[in-house]
Write a protein that binds this DNA or RNA. Sequence first.
RNA 1: GGAGAGGUGGCUGAGCGGUCGAAAGCGGCGGUCUUGAAAACCGUUGAACUGAAAGGUUCCCAGGGUUCGAAUCCCUGCCUCUCCGCCA
Length: 422
Amino acid sequence: MLSIKTLRENLSDVQDRLALRNSEISFDQWLARDKRQRVLKQKVEALKFKKNQSSKEIPRLKRAKEPIDALLKEMKVVSEEISVDEAELKIIEAENKDFLLTIPNLPHSTVAVGKSEVDNQEVRRWGQAPEFSFEVQNHWVLGESLGILDFERGAKISGARFVLYRGLGARLERALINFMLDLHTDKHHYREILPPFIVNRASMTGTGQLPKFEEDLFRLKDSDDFLIPTGEVPLTNIHADEILSESDFPISYTACTPCFRREAGSYGQDTRGLIRQHQFNKVELVQFSRAEQSYALLEKLLKDAEAVLQKLGLHYRVVSLCTGDLGFSAAKTYDIEVWIPAQNKYREISSCSNFEDFQARRAKIRYRTTDGKIRHPHTLNGSALAVGRTVVAILENYQQEDGSIVIPEVLRPYMGGIAQIG
RNA sequence: GGAGAGGUGGCUGAGCGGUCGAAAGCGGCGGUCUUGAAAACCGUUGAACUGAAAGGUUCCCAGGGUUCGAAUCCCUGCCUCUCCGCCA
């Protein structure tokens, strides 16, 4: 959520920056309502002042045995007037709030201007794409022939975009999770969390999934609760409605959670394989930061995510998203794209963002500075990494001519010493 | 699922129609003392909106209601706790 103050004082600047991210939003109605809101509020407050004065007066008059009937009658009228104006005010305030919740964040000044993903900026590459002396197979063919991925039965049990991991496939997923969590907790100093996977509407609104993207979420039938689409939601909302202390920062959390996504509107994309599932595991990093430090922390968070790929020996590149490709809540985002041999291209395996105070404002996360002021911290998060897609990358990059898979060195302790699948 | 209790400031907790944004304690901050620290003592200490300021308005889980006036009374919802039942 943008601050009302910013909107009131720099509206044309805000609109220019929103336009950079393809968001043409008309503020005309809001402006009119905001004006009306302020007028009404002033009026109501003046009436309430009168009411409060009289409320103090009445007991005094009573004690002095002076007549109060006229005053009571007058105050009844005032109270009625208040309730009429307040009813209108309430509606206007709710409309204004709802409107503000639909406005995306402003892109940071270092974000390249662009229309879509083709304008994203490559920041760096790490490693090299492996060369194969044979024809590479895609991961679902490899996984099915090794008996470690079962898409048919996943579909039978649940439907399209669900998969069953079997045997060493399931073990590989679990090994990756443990490897990533150990790395982040032991080496990168994140505190491990195991949060709820079902959250309420307030939490979803706090991080920005709601109100605009409800169709992307799985909602429970008998309550206003949702399956989380990312660990970002419960982790960021840990400090919702709290006032933290400046000395607490930076706060760093990591969690592995399943992520549930409807994938509405992605018909025909990645219909086969693990790339786009309704349920997948992801190790998430979340940070809360003093405003001044957040961009330095974004770079650290990105490095922490990259470290996973480096230790796994997987070739990747880092891309800085352009203004037109930014997510709703993000001010700046780096995607990490891992090399996928069978597709002969890089695919997103992590997304690391700085939300500045956008989420903090929505979720009412604040902190007290050392000199006593109340401010909103900046929130950041990144995947480190999407586990299913990491399995894809390992299967494809470490495949051998006979269809077997070599297990990266760092994972072998987590695989009971196994060096190869198949 | 059945029965009961309760939701008050960073925390514990009092208040149960007007003098209450709310006692007290703890914690925090500042000070006195001290070589320094602890202890003790003194002072101070909630948030949002509005205003140049003085000030004003709001907030005692949320939403309605009663009343001239609600933290306090009534209704609804949400949440927490205790006991019983069931259960990983």
